[in-house]
C-alpha cells in the first residue's frame, strides 16, 4: 500500500518537476530502453480457473475444486536474440502473486529494458536457497507466506489450495504447499541440511520484443492441472491434505512444476 503511495508521490513529484522548471536543453543521449509488464493468469484445462466448484478431475482421477493460489517468482532472466541476458533486479528481483488480491496479478516491472528482440525468458519458482531468508518480509501479505523455522525457514514458494472428494465422498482440504524440505532423524525430528525445492522455469516459446517508449505486455499463465500430471501422477488420496513435512510429495510437486507455466504475448 505504502509502496504504492510512494510510487504515486514519486510520479507526482516528477510531474511537478517537469512543469515547474524551465525546460532545459535536451540532448538526445536517452538510452534505448523500453518497459515490460507481466500479467499472471490461472487456468485449469485451458479455461480460467473457477473458484469453489467441484468441477475438475486431475490426472489421478481426483475430483477437486480450486480456491486460491499464492506464490513467488524470482530471478527473472530475459534472453536477447543477440545472446545477452537481461536480469530483472533493479527495484526488486521477485514478485508475489495471490489470486485473492487483484493488484498482485500484474507486475509493472520497474527496470528499463534495453530494446530489441528477445527469444525467451525464464524465472525461478520460489526463491533460491541463498535468497530465501527468514524475516526478509515484514509486511503482509508476503509475511503470511512464512515457512516455519523448524521446517527450514524462509517462505512458502507456493500455496495452492482447494478441496478434493475422497473415495468416501468426504471433501478434504488440500494445502499444496511448497517450500524447503526436511530430512528426519530416527525419532522423527527434522535435521539439517534442509532441501531447496525451488526450481527454474524456462519458457522456450516466449519470444517478444521491447521497443522505446512502449510497454510490452507479457502474460504468464499457470496451468494448475499440470502440477498433478507430468512426469508424476500426483494423487491427493495418497499424500493427504498437508505436505509441508512430506519431502517425497514436495519433490513430485517440484518435478511436475517444469511445465506448469505457459507464455503469451498481448498484442496491444
Amino acid at each position: 500500500m505504502i509502496t504504492m503511495k510512494i510510487k504515486i508521490s514519486l510520479f507526482v513529484l516528477a510531474a511537478l518537476m517537469l512543469v515547474s522548471c524551465k525546460k532545459k536543453d535536451e540532448t538526445d543521449t536517452s538510452p534505448k530502453t523500453g518497459k515490460i509488464s507481466i500479467s499472471f493468469e490461472h487456468f485449469i484445462s485451458n479455461q480460467p480457473a473457477i473458484v469453489n466448484d467441484y468441477i475438475y478431475t486431475n490426472a489421478a482421477g481426483n475430483v477437486y475444486s480450486f480456491f486460491l493460489v499464492r506464490y513467488f517468482i524470482s530471478d527473472v532472466e530475459l534472453y536477447k536474440s543477440d545472446g545477452s541476458v537481461v536480469k530483472i533486479d533493479k527495484w526488486t528481483d521477485h514478485f508475489y502473486v495471490d489470486t485473492d488480491i487483484p493488484h498482485t496479478l500484474e507486475w509493472n516491472v520497474f527496470d528499463e529494458i534495453s530494446i530489441g528482440n528477445f527469444d525467451s525468458l525464464s524465472f525461478r519458482f520460489g526463491f533460491s536457497d541463498t535468497k530465501n531468508q527468514s524475516f526478509m518480509f515484514v509486511n503482509q501479505p508476503e509475511s503470511n507466506m512464512v515457512w516455519p523455522e523448524e521446517l527450514g525457514g524462509g517462505y512458502h514458494y507456493l500455496q495452492l489450495e482447494g478441496k478434493w472428494i475422497d473415495p468416501n465422498g468426504i471433501k478434504i482440504g488440500y494445502a499444496f504447499h511448497l517450500g524447503r524440505g526436511q530430512h528426519y532423524d530416527g525419532s522423527g525430528n527434522p535435521v539439517p541440511p534442509f532441501i531447496d525445492n525451488s526450481f527454474r522455469v524456462s519458457l522456450p516459446n516466449s519470444a517478444f520484443s521491447v521497443e522505446t517508449d512502449k510497454t510490452t505486455k507479457l502474460t504468464l499463465r499457470m496451468n494448475i492441472e499440470n502440477w498433478f500430471e507430468e512426469p508424476h501422477l500426483y494423487d491427493h488420496n495418497q499424500w493427504g491434505g498437508d505436505i509441508m513435512q512430506q519431502q517425497p510429495a514436495m519433490l513430485l510437486a517440484k518435478e511436475n512444476g517444469w511445465n506448469v507455466f505457459s507464455f503469451n504475448l498481448n498484442n496491444n
Binding site: 475422497d166 468426504i170 471433501k171 478434504i172 494445502a175
Partner: peptide
C-alpha cells in the same frame, strides 16, 4: 467436520 471447514483445518479431515 462440515463441507465449510477451512481447507487449512487439516486435523478435521481424514
Amino acid at each position: 467436520y462440515s463441507e465449510y471447514a477451512h481447507q487449512l483445518m487439516h486435523k478435521v479431515f481424514p
